[in-house]
Design a protein around this nucleic acid. Structure first.
Lengths: 194, 194
DNA sequence: GGGTGCATGTAATGGGTTACATGATTCT
DNA sequence: AGAATCATGTAACCCATTACATGCACCC
């Protein structure tokens, strides 16, 4: 249903409206700063940049750098800026969310309770790991990007991640307890046929 | 990166392990009960069912029904049950999440603050609407599905949805306030060139 | 009369991942 | 010595959406 037609173009234009970058840079920055809610592989980004060049949204400068392939550094054009601004003010498509874990839990009565527990535990671990990472961002971002005009907006998206992670941690803990009570209830306990 | 190779097959097998259903039924049930974290279009489900039939995971019975195309009612086979159970105990791939709204907010300093506010407000409205819907489910599901063995598991996934919605509401309210303070700060206020 | 729901299906298109190819440099 | 990082790109594949085709029944 939602979210297609390579909105990733706008992620790239967004970065390019703050400076000139190579495809490699753009991939890395996207991963680091917006990876929680947006991403694109090299196999997607490089062809996209070529299309953007063809459509006059960006220009390239080739930087010879001795070894490895020369850096192709892209710069946004006025027409690229216009398109980007137009998109910024358009209504966003609804979020996209899919979870294999929840699908398994929904039909979980047919699964081995211990295995299920293990997967929820792993989800909790991952969320906890992310929480400490967010704590790190909250400390360093205001210093690193203090000069960028979009600092308050970055903090908004950071907040969104934090709320989501807190929620997942809460839920996972509650779910672990629930799974314990389920598997200890004798009438629901699985038996190998006797 | 994550989540492909039509795990949707398992959503279908999940339902079919509780009874026999047509493609149309499966689409509707999936939408209603697991739509928050899983979905598939008709254009995906019908061909999938044909493949599953070919692979011996299900059988069909054709129900003549006078008007409209005859219902193709699918029943899971033992081999289908085996495959489903195997999947249930396999580690799930990480959740997939994408948000165009957050991407716009991240680069929001270039946007019209009022428009951005409007989109966040719409997200808040949608979340609020979902909250009342969840309240409805919490009341009706225990009665409707009391006989199903997976009731406690359904409540787990419901809880997950509730936590997420509460988080989104919290965040949206906080974000609206933040956007207000940003746009009222004179040094950051946008000006049409004078 | 027109919209919605029932009911199945196919075809075109597109979006995106994964894998591959290449190869020097730097860190462990 | 071997892994990771820098750096760009192409091709195969595949998953999924969208649009289309068909047509009856029911409700407003």
């Amino acid at each position: 249903m939602p979210l297609n037609k390579s909105k990733t173009v706008y992620a790239l234009l967004g970065w390019l409206s703050t400076g000139s970058f190579s495809g490699y840079d753009l991939k890395k920055m996207t991963e680091q700063y917006v990876g929680e809610f947006w991403y694109g592989s090299f196999g997607q980004i490089y062809p996209l940049l070529h299309e953007m060049l063809r459509d006059g949204l960006v220009t390239v400068q080739t930087e010879q750098s001795g070894s490895h392939p020369p850096r192709q550094v892209y710069t946004i054009t006025d027409s690229g800026r216009d398109l980007f601004r137009k998109w910024l003010n358009e209504p966003p498509e609804p979020d996209l969310y899919k979870s294999e874990l929840l699908l398994q839990l929904f039909f979980g009565y047919l699964a081995d309770p211990e295995t299920l527990r293990k997967h929820v535990q792993e989800s909790l671990d991952e969320a906890t790991r992310q929480l400490t990472e967010y704590g790190h961002w909250q400390k360093t971002i205001p210093k690193q990007l203090a000069n960028l005009p979009n600092l308050p907006y970055i903090l908004i998206t950071l907040d969104s991640g934090l709320v989501a992670v807190h929620g997942r941690i809460e839920w996972a803990k509650r779910t672990l307890e629930m799974l314990d009570t389920i598997s200890s209830e004798p009438q629901l306990k699985k038996k190998t046929k006797r």
